[in-house]
Design a binder for these strands. Structure first.
Length: 527
DNA sequence: CTGGGGAGGGGGCCC
DNA sequence: TGGGCCCCCTCCCCA
């Protein structure tokens, strides 16, 4: 229902009114509309000159009018508290209001009234302040509710920022972060832009925010536990990601179909936890995500986005509105381990042990409750692991294909299955194969086995490959999750690869004994 | 349209 | 406490 109405609303939307799914800020909407027309936004159009403060002042004026209740033609009732606003601003900022107001647009003479029970007045204050100022005041206490409200109101950018806020509050070490960068650099260098992960592209590469309503006090101020002015630039204004290669596009298509965002963003924490979360606040069926939203989430999921770690007062730069010098400056040393999330981000919900029933010995049993949902676990470590499904943190990248995982065991499983062809089963006929009856076929970074019959059927000639070349995919040494897997770097020159011209296939002779030996050799390195 | 299989992801729990 | 295994579920692709 929601999506249908929303589409109708979008159809009626006047040009430049902004995209329901992606524009939470009117000025942003105007810029996007201009971009869609292939022209620069606003003042650029006629005179080629830009009055950078115009949009900011315009918004400021609208905000002032709202405060003084001037020209307000929309009343929003939230749990008994009345908020005054301008319908055109709401229309341009929220997909929900766009739908609502486009339906009631005929009665323009009467002020529109909307009533909400799904969130608190405080939460709506944050939302409305953002709409009229571009500043989102997030705290560890309100972020979940703000995200929920933004979801309700179909304000994708706000959702994205909330997600990033939560994500950035995780305990991700500096080392890990550096790994992202080095991985990114390496991929860019070695693959000429082929990389399925959107590590460094995005805001960091952005030389200057396209926002013309740059705020003098832009940036964040951490006052106690409160993050104020959690500013950001909408996803659509960030630099575009690098073009994936053919192979990655293929993988991306899979990813996108399965996960509407490159880095598994369907692990959109907010949605993903839905099975456990109390979703009473969400309207039925409004969750369908638009293309824009997918795009936004794909970019937001980029591990670097908005990550500027520091200690003490440096934490300020963690926000999305990273000061320019911060964004351009080199990353801090990877050797300095970042403090735990609890210490660094005290405003995040803490892990709380609760009494969860009774053990067999009639002693109360301590359990740990997830601060984001109703899930309870027996062990703190399990809760820590569980929290990743809310935050979307994926600290374990596959060096071979770049796909990231939230858990090391999942990564290991993925690697064995996809890149090591561990299953002694012919992928085509499903028969068991041995080193004599089958061979490993490499297709891109994927490896699987085919029996000789299926190989012959496919018209693929086999070739004996030096066993040293049999292990182009290595696990990192020494259990360090930050270590990387070297994708044939050392062996590359020795590998005799036979490519099947038609299908980009590479055949390697199966030798199970050696393969297993390789596995044994590899396995200790996983940890 | 449907069922089977592959892959990913989450939880429980052992080491 | 983290790593790893097992189990189960869901999603997606394909025949």
């Amino acid at each position: 229902m929601g999506s249908g109405l929303r589409e109708r609303g979008a159809e009626r939307a006047p040009p430049g009114a902004g995209d329901s799914a992606s524009s939470a800020c009117p000025s942003i909407a105007a810029e996007r509309a201009a971009a869609a027309r292939g022209t620069p936004a606003g003042p650029h159009v006629c005179f080629g000159m830009e009055i950078s403060s115009h949009q900011f002042h315009l918004l400021e004026q609208l905000n002032e009018q709202r405060r003084q209740d001037l020209f307000c033609d929309c009343n929003i009732l939230v749990e008994g508290k009345v908020f005054k606003a301008h319908r055109n601003v709401l229309f341009a900022s929220s997909g929900y209001f766009k739908m609502l107001l486009s339906q009631s647009s005929k009665e323009m003479t009467q002020p529109t009234t909307a009533t909400f029970q799904a969130f608190s007045p405080d939460t709506f204050t944050v939302i409305l302040d953002f709409v009229y100022s571009g500043k989102l005041s997030l705290t560890g206490q309100n972020v979940i509710e703000v995200m929920s409200a933004a979801s309700y109101l179909q304000m994708t950018d706000v959702i994205s920022v909330c997600k990033t806020f939560i994500k950035s509050s995780l305990d991700i070490s500096e080392k890990e972060k550096d790994r992202y960068f080095s991985l990114s650099d390496k991929e860019v260098n070695s693959n000429g832009g082929e990389q399925p992960c959107l590590y460094s592209a995005g805001w960091r590469a952005e030389s200057s925010p396209p926002h013309s309503h740059s705020n003098p006090d832009q940036g964040t101020c951490m006052r106690g536990n409160v993050w104020s002015n959690f500013n950001y630039y909408p996803a659509s204004q960030r630099s575009t990601q690098q073009q994936p290669s053919k192979h990655d596009q293929r993988q991306d298509s899979i990813k996108k179909s399965r996960h509407p965002g490159l880095q598994q963003p369907s692990d959109i924490p907010h949605y993903k936890s839905s099975k456990l979360e109390d979703r009473a606040a969400e309207p039925a069926g409004h969750i369908s995500q638009s293309e824009d939203q997918v795009q936004v989430e794909a970019e937001v999921e980029s591990p670097h986005v908005g990550y500027q770690y520091g200690q003490g007062s440096d934490v300020i730069s963690r926000s999305l509105a990273v000061p320019q010098q911060e964004r351009d400056s080199p990353r801090p040393s990877s050797k300095s381990k970042s403090p735990k999330a609890d210490e660094q981000y005290p405003s995040m919900p803490s892990i709380v042990g609760v009494m969860g029933g009774w053990a067999e010995d009639d002693l109360p049993r301590m359990r740990f409750k997830c601060p984001f949902c109703t899930h309870m676990v027996k062990r703190k470590a399990d809760l820590k692991r569980h929290l990743r499904c809310h935050t979307g943190e994926r600290p374990y990248p596959c060096e071979a294909c770049g796909k990231r995982f939230s858990r090391l065991d999942h990564l290991s499983s993925h690697f064995r299955t996809i890149h090591q062809a561990c299953k002694l089963i012919c992928r085509k006929c499903k028969r068991h194969v041995t080193e004599l009856t089958g061979q490993v076929v490499q297709e891109g970074t994927r490896r699987y086995r085919l029996c000789n019959e299926c190989l012959a059927e496919a018209g693929i000639d086999s070739i004996r490959i030096d066993l040293e070349a049999e292990a182009p995919l290595e696990f990192p040494p020494d259990g360090d999750k930050d270590s990387r897997w070297h994708y044939g770097e050392d062996n590359k020159s020795d590998v005799e690869i036979v490519e099947d011209g038609s299908s980009d296939l590479v055949i390697q002779q199966v030798d199970d004994s050696e393969d297993e030996a390789e596995e044994k050799e590899v396995k200790p390195n996983i940890r």
